[in-house]
Design a protein around this nucleic acid. Sequence first.
DNA 1: TTGCATCCGGTACCTGGGTACAGGCTTACC
DNA 2: GGTAAGCCTGTACCCAGGTACCGGATGCAA
Lengths: 148, 148
Amino acid sequence: MTSSGLRSGELADAAGVNQQTLRYYERRGLLASPQRSPGGHRIYPAETVTLLRIIKTAQRLGFTLNEVADLLDAGRHRHGRRPDSGLQARARDKLAEIEQKLTDLTVIRDTLRAAISAGCDDLVSCADSPCCPLPFAELAQRNDNAGH
Amino acid sequence: MTSSGLRSGELADAAGVNQQTLRYYERRGLLASPQRSPGGHRIYPAETVTLLRIIKTAQRLGFTLNEVADLLDAGRHRHGRRPDSGLQARARDKLAEIEQKLTDLTVIRDTLRAAISAGCDDLVSCADSPCCPLPFAELAQRNDNAGH
DNA sequence: TTGCATCCGGTACCTGGGTACAGGCTTACC
DNA sequence: GGTAAGCCTGTACCCAGGTACCGGATGCAA
């Protein structure tokens, strides 16, 4: 390994994350428990910076921390692989998920545009106006999309 | 008003929400405190079903419960209106928000597609392969979009 | 009047991704 | 060896939008 190692504050700075986040990731199984100094302080190998960058990248692609942990695990013992465990397969699933969200958000966008150009200015009056474009009648009922 | 009124279970069924949710909305200021029976049971006017439908519709359009509460309030005392308080203005802001999310998700989608067609199958090996399309180098750092 | 369904308030818990704080130890530098 | 910066553990809290459980009180029909 490269020279000595990083202390938690140094690693946090280098990777641009909070120091508490490091311990949080350790609890969540994303980071292995690092070596300790005689007094109990964590000493991380330098590659951990890369690992954190990997984690952040996967997060940005829409994977949850659990999924990232799985993905890292799957990469670690890639002998005797089940065919569903690689990044390829997971990326395909995630892509489908993202595409679904895009579809949902597009419907929402179009509805908002319709409401704007119809001049809607009050929800309650809209609700009993028959010409309002807002979908008060139930709609597909999948929520997961919009409200962040 | 139409006849007698609804009890909380009836309203919940009629509107397709959980009974606890009604009390939750009452605490959050989305539903006014209804009349009570002599024994303290809530009695809702029949229009509350419509109101709940309105709330759900606004939620589906991406408004948070706080925003929905504001929107309903703004509609209620629409005398002496500030010009930013109508549905029009809020819908325009929300539309911009949704469009930003669409843009972000589109970037994510394209990145996933690139990773899939480049055949990436392991994050850790990708991270030090120079030809991997995954953006390990920092990227725009706005997260709010993907992770649901 | 009895019995059961329903409702009450209060509080705790859930997901997901962290962040903050308190009180005490370790490390580094002079 | 003193002092300050940094680190330790444990616990609690934050956002949003609910959901679940509890013991006790009510409502309604037979």
